[in-house]
């Protein structure tokens, strides 16, 4: 307890002050602002899709199948005569909805487990590390496919499957960040006061690793979007005729020489969303000084 005799540390900033500072540094990073703006536009489009297009994304119209871009259909139509633009605009709903839910569950679970591992240490940490290594050793797409075939497709199952696949990686990152906080005096003091692990986690550790968790969220979200679209492409994700980007590429790939826009439009939508998420993650980590590489992402 000799550390308690040294000079008192600076009083911790209050939560609003900290948030204000985080916001200021965030605005100074061009990459983060651009990335968040792109993601924001995608969210807006997904929410406002019914106002932006008068076409029904799942209505077949065989008399207008496989049209090129024109006045009536800006991005043309697919083999069933569905308006490609409408499907792309509505497609963000599935991608964003499932991805955000899956990322939230994954990061929340990973954060709690990672902090707990750092705080408890000992055999709990060791055993957890081993088990997570073992989970990581199985390719994520295979693990995902097994879960989905076992429990059937559906948004809830996909959220669960993504959590199974990505929680171990989040745990690793968060555990690394939390390990830097655990030796601090205020954690020791909280332990000496006899506070429960949960309360230490919530009040002492979490506020100090919020930046790491936020960056992890943005980074993980980009992976999740990619994984979910791959799953849809392979036919295990969104069920036809749901408008979904991965599914659209799978459906229109065979007709790529006839109506290239039907494949390119969802590709562009998907790529811009992920570029936005990646830019946000990069910008945030630079602005807040979160070194993702050192934390073994």
């Amino acid at each position: 307890m000799t550390t308690l005799d040294t000079a008192p540390p600076a009083p911790p900033a209050t939560a609003p002050a900290r948030a204000a500072r985080a916001w200021r540094t965030l605005r100074s990073s061009r990459a983060a602002v651009i990335g968040l703006a792109i993601v924001g536009v995608h969210v807006l489009i997904a929410v406002l899709a019914p106002l932006l297009t008068s076409y029904d994304p799942i209505a077949n119209d065989s008399s207008h199948a496989l049209l090129g871009p024109g006045w009536d259909h800006w991005a043309g139509t697919d083999q069933y005569g569905r308006d490609v633009l409408a499907r792309v605009l509505y497609g963000g709903r599935y991608a964003l909805g499932v991805s955000v839910a899956a990322t939230l569950v994954t990061v929340a679970l990973g954060t709690v487990v990672g902090c707990a591992a750092a705080l408890r240490g000992g055999w709990f940490d060791d055993v957890l590390g081993r088990v997570l290594d073992a989970v990581l050793a199985v390719p994520s797409i295979l693990a995902l496919l097994v879960v989905v075939t076992a429990l059937g497709t559906g948004p809830a199952v996909i959220v669960l499957a993504i959590a199974v696949v990505y929680v171990p990686q989040v745990v690793r990152v968060v555990r690394g960040a939390a390990l830097a906080v655990v030796p601090a005096d205020y954690v020791t003091a909280a332990r000496a006061r006899g506070e429960s692990t949960w309360s230490i986690l919530r009040r002492e550790v979490l506020p100090n690793i919020t930046d790491v968790v936020c960056v992890e969220f943005a980074m993980r979200a980009s992976w999740v979007v990619l994984l979910i679209s791959s799953l849809s492409f392979l036919g295990f994700g969104a069920d036809p005729p749901t408008p979904d980007w991965g599914l659209m590429v799978a459906e229109n790939r065979t007709a790529i020489t006839v109506v290239p826009m039907a494949s390119l439009a969802p590709i562009i939508a998907l790529a811009t969303l992920v570029v936005g998420l990646n830019l946000a993650a990069d910008g945030l980590s630079k602005a807040w000084g979160v070194d993702r590489i050192r934390e073994g992402s």
Partner: peptide, 11 residues
């Protein structure tokens, strides 16, 4: 490389 990271393999 940012773009390469942002598009899935099937794309």
């Amino acid at each position: 490389s940012l773009v390469g990271m942002s598009v899935p393999e099937f794309v």
